[in-house]
Design a binder for these strands. Structure first.
Lengths: 165, 165
DNA sequence: CGGCAATATCTGCCTCGGCAAATACTGCGC
DNA sequence: GCGCAGTATTTGCCGAGGCAGATATTGCCG
């Protein structure tokens, strides 16, 4: 039923998914930040703009959820983006608790300005890493699969402790 | 020669490797931290102990490199681990700049105490995500491949800007 | 309407990582 | 030995995220 992917005896850091993800993320992040060093927003903030345009997030909490980001951090990020004039906040009329977010012209522009650079950088890295299209597709697929499983797993209140019912 | 993995036109956050890695890492991290919440060290610190025992890191700079971690952060992490009595620092006699790190008995014990829990949690998540052994092996392989490429890419001084020579 | 749980957002506090400067030491050339 | 470039480590500073509490608002129930 359940597969033993890892065994305590032969467990090494270099083969551990947690470690690999941490490293890959760190390297990818610093790789991406190189592009954004010359701009007034960060990679994460750019992703937020992208999410807004994609319509995946209309409010701050949407952004929190779809980006695995903290509430407070999102508030401050939006402050930043609003100062720069890339997004607008407007209290909803229907529900005055929520703040509707909207990408401004400048935000759209910033997004489009950076899009080709990000894409180029990603392609560059994948080529340099010697990926084939099939491998790339497979990696994307598997990461999505893992992500879905992780999200489900983390949604459980106290996994593997007192849930023997 | 170079493959176009991404195209500016059809680029979405949910298919972007940067985004996927960020999300997967965040979820994996919070998943792992659940185990460590009841202990006096964090997941990252545990990895450091593991690296020490594996012999992959004998000094602080070794740890920095092999964990993609900041110099200062490692110093403070070692302060923490030393306070807890899990590692010992000793100035090298050969080169008095370097600090030799050594896992203490307590450190070994802590490592062994947590190892099965970490392994179990990883297996749990992978099973819940519906991974086959082959898929798991493939994911590990592809992540390693990407990581190697990223490290090489990031080692370059100013990639893709002024290096037309 | 008034109480009350739930939700959205914001704020303050804390920790941690990234960065740069400072310190200590080595090895090399003079 | 002395100066100097290079390396290992430490420290201070800053920005960002996690977490808990505060505030504002809604919807529900009586």
């Amino acid at each position: 039923m359940s597969t033993m992917f890892y065994d305590p005896a032969g467990f090494t850091s270099r083969t551990s998914l947690g470690y690999l993800l941490k490293m890959a993320h760190a390297q990818m992040h610093s790789c991406a930040e190189r592009i954004f060093a010359q701009h007034d927003i960060s990679f994460v903030q750019w992703i937020a703009l992208l999410k807004l345009r994609e319509g995946q997030a209309l409010t701050a909490s949407d952004l929190c959820r779809s980006m695995c980001h903290d509430n407070g951090a999102v508030t401050r990020m939006l402050d930043h983006l609003e100062e720069r004039g890339y997004v607008e906040r407007r209290r909803s009329r229907q529900d005055r608790r929520v703040v509707e977010l909207r990408l401004t012209e400048a935000g759209e522009h910033k997004l489009d300005e950076l899009l080709p650079q990000v894409v180029a950088r990603l392609n560059e890295v994948l080529n340099a890493s010697g990926f084939s299209e099939a491998e790339f597709a497979e990696l994307t697929h598997l990461l999505n699969k893992l992500l879905t499983g992780l999200q489900a797993h983390n949604a459980l209140p106290e996994p593997g402790i007192g849930d023997s019912t």
